[in-house]
């Protein structure tokens, strides 16, 4: 799980001091133990990366629902859901054109989940 975190930080490592990176990795390692779903508020927390990848590649047979993948809580207000989906759509639509093939693949799965939630909550177009 942590490989993904550290891999994504590799490029950053090249640019910044070892101390700063050690601090970031320490935070990432500690945070990766946290089971909270990605908040998606734009605040940088490296553990999100591993959480998202874990979620879209579920270990169990049933797997998470599209709502869980998108971090939609059962009683979340519709306006909040709309904002959350807009944020995720912007992020993953962009990621679908990433130079990183893994991220492109992940983006397609996420876009599917985002659209499913949108249709579940707001109805089909």
């Amino acid at each position: 799980m942590f490989d993904n975190v550290f891999k994504s930080l590799k490029a950053i490592k090249d640019s910044f001091t070892a101390d700063a990176i050690r601090r970031a990795e320490k935070r990432a390692t500690a945070a990766a133990a946290d089971d909270a779903l990605p908040a998606g508020d734009g605040v940088f927390k490296p553990q999100r990366i591993s959480r998202l990848i874990d979620i879209v590649q579920p270990a169990t047979l049933a797997g998470p629902t599209p709502e869980e993948i998108c971090g939609i809580a059962p009683k979340m207000p519709k306006q909040e859901i709309r904002q959350r989906l807009a944020l995720l759509y912007r992020r993953y639509n962009r990621a679908a054109s990433s130079l990183d093939p893994k991220l492109r693949h992940e983006a397609e799965r996420m876009l599917d989940a985002i659209v499913t939630v949108r249709e579940n909550v707001f109805g089909p177009i």
């Binding site: 490029a11 090249d14 910044f16 700063a20 734009g42 605040v43 490296p46 999100r48 990621a95």
Partner: peptide
């Protein structure tokens, strides 16, 4: 610069508007 005695400054050029480095390309 964040540290003293740095000999090389490395600047990554990124493409993408996301704050999160994971979701931008270093080009």
């Amino acid at each position: 610069t964040s540290e003293a005695n740095e000999r090389f400054i490395e600047v990554d050029i990124t493409q993408g508007e996301d704050d999160d480095p994971r979701f931008v390309d270093v080009i």
